[in-house]
Design a protein around this nucleic acid. Structure first.
Lengths: 230, 230
DNA sequence: CGTCCATTTGACCTAATTCAATACAGGTGG
DNA sequence: CCACCTGTATTGAATTAGGTCAAATGGACG
């Protein structure tokens, strides 16, 4: 029988292990990593941190979907990012030591893996490979926001919404016969935020997409009659 | 008389030295840093790199103003960032090894300091402090783009343009008696890009701001009659 | 079967887009 | 120094899209 590894890597069983920011952690630090590595399950709607909170460390989404929102002084808010499994959140506060500039909330039942602030700092200092992966994650976020700015500048809101729904369908949909179906993980206001219009306007754009036969949307049930690249 | 330092830090005389990404480079690597460190002066309008080019290394703006634009397949383009002295550009291509996703062009006579790709990679590997500063620069870019997305969502285009002009005035303006004056470093289309409208619309918004007496704009000459926080 | 909240609809108004025409600024060469 | 030329910027008019506020609908849930 195989001898059990005494200090298995805490991310070893994760589907995203090979891309994990902690993958480069050497044998000598794995024990330290395990020591303050916690998995937490979040019910839908649970807030992971609030705007203004101190960093809890490096947080990796393992399951589900996390929304990152910026709250404004007038009470409104803007959805800035959807974080999917394998992605890191809270990285800005971790690296700068600033308070969180967004709030994080689970849009679906989710699981996150947290490495606490102090411990993560130690490990990053002893494992340069980790920092270099964290930098790549930052660049991914820059890429995402640049794409969003470009999309806002070049696409009509209708195209923009269609593209967004298609992306969501790719991530959350399942094929049923000759069409795709999903439960929308977002409210109408969140959808409106993502394309940069008011909720009422979003409602009308949805109507236009339905009239074109590209999507059928009732409540949170969304159906696309034809596979995208048919 | 003082003994001349044999290997002075190439950024030692720079006004931004203490914040330089190369500041943490230890004595042993300073020689390597000097070896492929070049300063280049760019006339206004000169292109530093084109979209699709390979990374030339880590580039720091020393003087002037660099515009980073994304070119789209339909021939249009979007101004994504203005890079001021002390800022790093081309960091995404450097860290990922990808081709540039933007083009960089000098909007004013400028000077940049370049550390070539291979050399920079070596130095980063031997000086973890450098990577950590590069990561902070990435976070700065994330902050800037987030602010832009939030500004687009929360401000009217008129407020948005007023805020932009004010920022430009802070950076480029000089006080003349009871008003500020600057030569606008951007074309009308670039201004339009930055607030996300068509050039014709920008023209009309400028008209509205002038009617309110907040700015006086003729060609590239801009004047604000009253200091901002009077 | 109500109640409450999210969403949709309607009506009205304001702002932005589009396309075409005109005006202007900055540079060139006589 | 001025007239001209060229690309940039402004203006106009017509159209469309989006914002706003109020009212109605609909769904989820107790």
């Amino acid at each position: 029988m195989p001898i059990p590894t005494p200090n298995p890597h805490p991310c070893g069983q994760c589907a995203f292990y090979s891309q994990s920011v902690w993958e480069p952690v050497g044998k000598s630090s794995v024990a330290a990593l395990r020591h303050r590595f916690t998995r937490t399950d979040l019910p839908e709607g649970q807030t992971l941190w609030k705007q203004g909170n101190e960093s809890a460390g490096v947080i990796c989404v393992s399951r589900g979907l996390i929304a990152l929102r910026s709250l404004h002084s007038d009470g409104s808010s803007t959805l800035l990012r959807l974080a999917y499994p394998g992605e890191i959140i809270g990285i800005r506060s971790f690296l700068t030591g600033r308070a969180h500039q967004t709030e994080a909330k689970a849009l679906q039942p989710s699981r996150v893996c947290v490495v606490s602030q102090n411990r993560a700092n130690q490990i990053v200092q002893n494992n340069p490979g980790v920092l270099s992966r964290l930098a790549i994650r930052c660049i991914n976020e820059i890429d995402r926001t640049h794409e969003r700015i470009i999309a806002a500048a070049t696409m009509s809101n209708k195209e923009h919404l269609a593209a967004l729904l298609q992306r969501l369908m790719d991530a959350h949909g399942e094929k049923i016969g000759d069409h795709y179906r999903m439960r929308l993980p977002l409210s109408r206001s969140d959808l409106a935020d993502l394309i940069g219009v008011q909720p009422e306007t979003l409602s009308r754009i949805v109507g236009r997409l339905e009239k074109d036969g590209r999507f059928k949307i009732t409540g949170r049930k969304v159906v696309t009659p034809i596979p995208p690249c048919a």
